[in-house]
Design a binder for these strands. Structure first.
Length: 286
RNA sequence: GCCAGGAUAGCCAAGGUGGUCACGGCGCGCGACUGAAAAUCGUGAGAUCUCAGUUCGACUCUGAGUCCUGGCA
């Protein structure tokens, strides 16, 4: 059995640093599993720590354009390739990042993964109301609608995805999902904060640092280059708030406060999602 | 000091010829989430400035007080 180490957990817990330590001490290579660090040009606000990683190889960094959508399926494909490459050279793959959906997809697979996004369809239904989307889905497949929980029934993104599945299921039968081969001995480490205070402290400190490092300048440059708040890569905490500031919708202080708040809320959501995975071994920080 | 306006949850804020559980938004708590996930969504707990009066009943009307905002001095 070959070892593979996963380092995930809440934002701002120091995952990258821990991953680097492992990579150095156990001769490993990193695979990024942070849905934002996938993107080129997003550096300061999403915290690519290039200094920390000078002596370690990292995969899946800066591989997609912020205007392009990058899915958990895309991640899985790239990650499987990297894992195989790393392991074939007898090094240890170390996956690091807080995007649990990506990990979930990689480890446990997704049954409907062969039905790919239909952008024309998504575009079309974007403007539909919840009620209209629900009607549409019920018309196509009462079954799929019934399987949705209370929350998903009012979630436009998920309703649209289900409509997508319903309209394409006839043409493409889902094959067996591919996922991480069982030959690996997987160790998942999750980092989480001891309490709310330590989380808030860490986030505040990190935001202040990123502002000092040029967060505002980074956003200005992206806007100048033609990126907008609607681009997949920029639908990201930090960028959204600073863009609102540049648009005159928020004051500087409001933008910074909201950035911090959203980051804290995100950390909470991450843990809510991850704690259901009993394979994660938790370590507290803060 | 005078005139005018205002005081509703941690913050912003609607309301009604006086009558069951006072509209929302943000934040906060909890949760969902199988090709958008730093996304998207569900759900819960929080309030009528103080005192007195009118009334069967006042957050809503009257009076006094306190505080805030603008104008005049």
């Amino acid at each position: 059995m070959k070892d593979i180490i996963i380092i995930t957990g809440q934002t701002a817990t120091g995952k990258t640093k821990l991953a680097r330590d492992y990579a150095l001490s156990r001769d490993g290579e990193l695979i990024n599993c942070d849905s934002r660090q996938i993107y080129k040009h997003l550096t300061i606000i999403c915290g690519k720590d290039l200094n920390l990683l000078q002596d370690v190889r990292i995969w899946l960094y800066d591989i997609s354009d912020p205007k392009k959508y990058f899915s958990s399926y895309d991640f899985k494909k790239h990650a499987l390739f990297a894992i195989e490459d790393i392991a074939s050279r007898n090094k240890i793959p170390i996956i690091v990042g807080g995007t649990y959906l990506y990990l979930k997809h990689l480890f446990y697979g997704i049954e409907t993964e062969t039905i790919k996004p239909d952008w024309k369809l998504r575009k079309k239904f974007e403007q539909y109301s919840i009620v209209e989307l629900q009607k549409m889905l019920k018309k196509l497949s009462v079954q799929l609608f019934k399987q949705l929980n209370q929350s998903d029934r009012k979630n436009p993104q998920r309703l649209i995805r289900k409509i997508e599945l319903a309209t394409h299921s006839k043409a493409q039968k889902p094959k067996k999902p591919s996922q991480l081969p069982k030959v690996f001995n997987v160790k998942i480490i999750g980092l989480r904060f001891k309490n709310k205070e330590s989380l808030r402290n860490a986030v505040e400190k990190r935001v202040a640092e990123r502002i000092k490092n040029g967060a505002f300048e980074e956003v200005a440059k992206l806007l100048e280059a033609g990126y907008t708040k609607r681009d997949p890569g920029l639908k990201t905490i930090g960028y959204q708030q600073l863009i609102a500031y540049f648009d005159g919708k928020l004051t500087k202080d409001e933008a910074i406060d909201q950035w911090i708040t959203k980051e804290i809320q995100y950390a909470k959501r991450q843990y809510t999602f991850m704690k259901k995975d009993l394979n994660i071994k938790w370590r507290e920080v803060g």
